[in-house]
Design a protein around this nucleic acid. Sequence first.
DNA 1: CCTTTTTGTTAGCTTATACTAACCTTTGGG
DNA 2: CCCAAAGGTTAGTATAAGCTAACAAAAAGG
Lengths: 120, 120
Amino acid sequence: MALYASGEDYLEAILVLQRKMGAVRSVDLDRHMNFSKPSISNAVGLLKKGGFLEVDGNGSLLLTGLGREVAEQIYERHQFFTRQLIAAGVDEKLAEEDACKIEHAISEESFRKWKAELEG
Amino acid sequence: MALYASGEDYLEAILVLQRKMGAVRSVDLDRHMNFSKPSISNAVGLLKKGGFLEVDGNGSLLLTGLGREVAEQIYERHQFFTRQLIAAGVDEKLAEEDACKIEHAISEESFRKWKAELEG
DNA sequence: CCTTTTTGTTAGCTTATACTAACCTTTGGG
DNA sequence: CCCAAAGGTTAGTATAAGCTAACAAAAAGG
């Protein structure tokens, strides 16, 4: 099952929220991303079907190995682009916003090389 | 009328083709981008309606001031990201592909500042 | 215990962006 | 001069990703 920009964003959000607050349920995603409950519910269903996460008896979202891998990759990109933009003088809010879009647009290969070049 | 990633790509392609071969018709776009004729036709219609281009009696696509402005902005981003990635060791083909996606994801403000920072 | 709130799902809609199949023009060579 | 090719449009379809309205189930607390 393919993963798209949207799915990457959900996985990243789950990772971030897990680090911040331990267990993460759909409703936490709901509050963190600004999407409606049905959108979250639908996205979580797709990620489950794709093997990126599982839902336990308490409704907690658990990243699988695959899901965690993707989430960490995307989050690393997020941080890199945010740092770069802030270093260039962009204010934090905009830097985050733009990083959040760029992170889905670049290939892993380009990212690795560019990061090595700029921060290596 | 709003302009999306897709529209930006068409405008950029028109600009590039104009520079390379003078007049540009839909069929030239057709060959340059790998989309079907109806997709091109539809996109051109939307760009016309949005005031980004006009079509003359010969079917040539003429960028308006607005259209040219957008096209040049996007093309500048395209060139910047391609250069950066190539400088980081990414091969040209992938650099172009990734640049082509990143160019739509970044805000003008972030782009200006980042370009100034990296290429002074 | 019953009611309200919290949480999640279903059903159905919208929009951006692509596609194919089929059709209509215009144009240009034999 | 006619027929084929080239160029472009129409109609209908698909998919990713969001939305609202309405419902269902579970938890919480007076």
